[in-house]
Amino acid sequence: MKKLFLMSLSIFYLGCNGQNNNNLNKNVGSNIKMGKTIEKLDLDYIKNHAQKISYRVQGAVSSEVLSDEKPNMIYYKLDEVKNGKKIYIEGDEENGFTSEIKYLNSDYLEYISYDGKGNLLTKIKQSVYGFLIEEQEYNERRKLIKSIDYDNEFKFKWEGVKEYLKTLNVKTDINSFNNHPYPNKDIPIPIIKREFIKDTNQTQQYPVGTKKIWCLENVEGIYDNKKGIYSIILDGDSGEVLIVKEFKGKKSGSEGFGTYADYELIYSKLANKKQSSTYKTYEGKDYTRSEWEEFEQKQFEDYARKHNISIAKNDKKDTNGFTSRFLLDD
Rank of each mutant, 00 (worst) to 15 (best):
S310M: 05
K40I: 07
L165K: 08
K26I: 13
E90C: 02
I11E: 09
C16W: 04
S252Q: 14
R325F: 03
Y111H: 09
M34D: 03
F247T: 11
Q205N: 12
L144I: 10
T200P: 07
F257S: 05
D151Q: 11
G239A: 03
I101W: 03
D315F: 12
V208K: 15
K198M: 12
T281K: 02
S99L: 09
Y223L: 04
S54D: 03
E264W: 02
K227H: 08
L234M: 12
K146F: 14
L328M: 11
I133L: 15
H49R: 13
G258R: 09
K269N: 04
M1W: 15
I229Y: 05
Y303K: 06
M34Q: 12
N21H: 05
D68C: 00
S231E: 07
H307F: 11
E246A: 08
E64C: 03
N314S: 08
G284S: 04
R194A: 01
K155Y: 12
Q275S: 06
G258K: 07
L242K: 09
K198R: 14
E134T: 13
T98W: 06
N119S: 11
A304C: 08
I309K: 08
D42W: 01
S290D: 11
S113L: 02
E217W: 10
N308K: 15
I311Y: 01
I145K: 10
G209S: 02
T288E: 01
E255F: 14
K211E: 15
R289I: 04
D199H: 13
Y114G: 03
L41W: 07
Y164W: 15
N17S: 07
N201R: 14
K251Q: 14
S106W: 03
V219L: 10
S8A: 14
K52G: 00
N119E: 12
K26D: 14
K212C: 01
F154D: 07
Y164R: 14
N23I: 15
E293R: 11
S113F: 04
N314F: 04
E291S: 06
I124S: 08
V219T: 15
V219I: 15
I309D: 03
